[in-house]
Design a protein around this nucleic acid. Structure first.
Length: 465
RNA sequence: GGCCCCAUCGUCUAGAGGUCUAGGACUCCGGGUUCUCAGUCCGGCAACAGGGGUUCGAAUCCCCUUGGGGCUGCCA
């Protein structure tokens, strides 16, 4: 059987680094085995799901290079791929469950359940469903329904000793006692299935072979296994990857380090950098070159080498991957992007893509993002605002340079050095202020190169005296 | 509260009983190179949470404690 994995986000927010890493691992595992990567939209939370989030998630996945073989927009053999469009299927399966007596209607209202939970907690009891609707008679049910109550449907968790056990690809054996699991709702009173149920049904019919997801689902898996068993379905393999924690060591939240992929893109990170960074959280690998190529990454990917402890999101390390990715990028490509950005930004373009590509090797110095790269090059597009005192030799230098006809970096450098020596200045005493007047910056590519690129006229006008 | 998961430098991690005076990467620090900064190259600081076992021998196995996380939802 060929490998099929899925990424099943709920469209209740943007794709953030945690979800992106889950998607990445699923993609890698499918591709490693020449299998299929399925995108499934889990929009069963009607209150919080929105089409806008679905769109942004898809856009961000594509940006990361994680294209899906089956899913919304691209179709596939298991249509539809949005849970809200699969409602009749869940109803059908629920019917089976009813017939085999694996579920029962629960007439408790959310308010009653909440009160019950509070009560249990205050008495130091585990907050679990009491099972009070489990043994209702037909007569009881009729009475409750006459009151206008619409039931939800709960799964009858076997009341027995022992534990529900399964093998997890990263955690090894995981087990939970039956007595720890309360009867859980599979179908809400409004006819919408819960995640626990819908995911099981979909994973079965979509023939998912490996469920790779965050380890917050570890306890849930036992419930889902119960469902698989009740339906006589073969469950997939499970791999629960540790969830990324914030700098403070807490679960990622909007307030704490839950960076959205959208945000990283807008800040100018390259997708391969984000991917490589995400991959190395929990995945220990030797070498790093292959991390920039998705297919190479897939070849080397191993579920068994994923570590069990939660990594902490670290911007410093993301930045390092960012600069590595830029360094490896084709110069022409980089130049193209920069030129495009400047023209879109309405900046005067004083340089051709080819010229820029030649300049780039000297200009690259640890910028983590394209935005930073552009920033570091802004002397190309703006005359600097210099507030420093004009050195006394500036007027002479200007005159000297005006006489230089052969305007290339070698000649410029000769001129500059001769001038500096004649003045009796140390190199830094001369070049440093000159750089500031030419670029407004205290660092950058070699000055003669900058001067050649900017052109004689531009340089003369920047050397205010 | 109950149950479960996790635990090596500040961070990501290697390590599957002796090869560990614990290796690599990021950050940081020092030095070389450079007109400057960055980069780059070289070097350096820095960890097995604590306590008990098991064993000739433990970062590696077991137990307890501590710490962190998750689940315990008509969220996913």
């Amino acid at each position: 059987m060929s490998v099929r994995t899925r990424f099943a986000p709920s469209p209740t927010g943007n794709l953030h680094i945690g979800g992106a890493r889950t998607a990445l691992f699923n993609w890698l595992w499918a591709k490693k085995w020449n299998g299929k990567f399925v995108l499934r939209i889990e929009d069963t939370d009607r209150d919080r799901s929105s089409p806008e989030f679905e769109e942004s998630i898809k856009r961000d996945l594509k940006w990361l290079g994680l294209e899906w073989d089956e899913g919304p927009d691209v179709g596939g053999a298991h249509l539809p791929y949005r849970q809200s469009e699969r409602l009749s299927l869940y109803l059908e399966i629920l019917k089976k469950l009813k017939e085999t007596d694996y579920v029962y209607p629960c007439y408790c209202t959310p308010e009653e359940l909440e009160a019950e939970r509070k009560e249990q907690l205050s008495r130091g009891m585990p907050p679990r469903y009491s099972g009070k609707c489990r043994n209702l008679t037909e007569e009881d049910r009729k009475i409750l329904e006459r009151e206008g109550r619409v039931p939800s449907w709960r799964f009858k968790v076997p009341q027995r000793d022992g534990r529900i056990e399964f093998h997890d690809e990263v955690h090894g054996t995981y087990a939970l006692s039956y007595s720890e699991v309360g009867d859980f709702i599979v179908m809400r009173s409004d006819g919408i299935p819960t995640y626990l149920f819908a995911a099981v049904v979909d994973d079965h019919f979509m023939e998912i072979t490996h469920v790779i997801r965050g380890d917050e689902h570890l306890p849930n898996t036992t419930r889902q296994l119960l469902l698989f068993k009740a339906l006589s379905w073969q469950p997939p393999s499970f791999a629960h990857i540790p969830m990324i924690l914030s700098r403070e060591g807490r679960k990622l939240s909007k307030r704490e380090g839950a960076e959205s992929i959208d945000d990283l893109r807008q800040r100018g990170y390259l997708p391969e950098a984000v991917r490589a960074y995400l991959a190395t959280l929990s995945w220990a690998v030797e070498g790093e070159d292959f991390l920039f190529d998705l297919n190479e990454m897939a070849k080397r990917f191993e579920l068994s080498s994923i570590s069990r402890s939660s990594p902490i999101h670290d911007e410093e390390r993301l930045r390092w991957w960012g600069s590595e990715a830029i360094k490896r990028k084709d110069l022409k490509w980089l130049a193209d992007v920069i030129v495009k950005m400047t023209s879109e930004g309405g900046l005067p373009v004083r340089i051709t893509t080819e010229e820029l590509a030649m300049l780039l090797p000297e200009a690259l110095s640890g910028q983590a993002t394209i935005v930073e790269l552009l920033e570091s090059l802004n002397w190309l597009f703006h005359r600097p605002q210099v507030h420093e005192a004009v050195p006394p030799w500036m007027r002479d230098l200007k005159a000297e340079l005006s006489k230089l006809d052969d305007w290339n970096k070698a000649k410029i450098e000769d001129k500059l050095r001769a001038f500096q020596k004649r003045l009796g200045l140390k190199a830094r005493e001369f070049f440093h202020p000159l750089r500031i007047f030419v670029t407004g910056r205290i660092s950058g590519p070699p000055l003669p190169l900058i001067m050649e690129v900017l052109g004689k006229e531009e340089i003369i006008s920047r050397l205010v005296d």
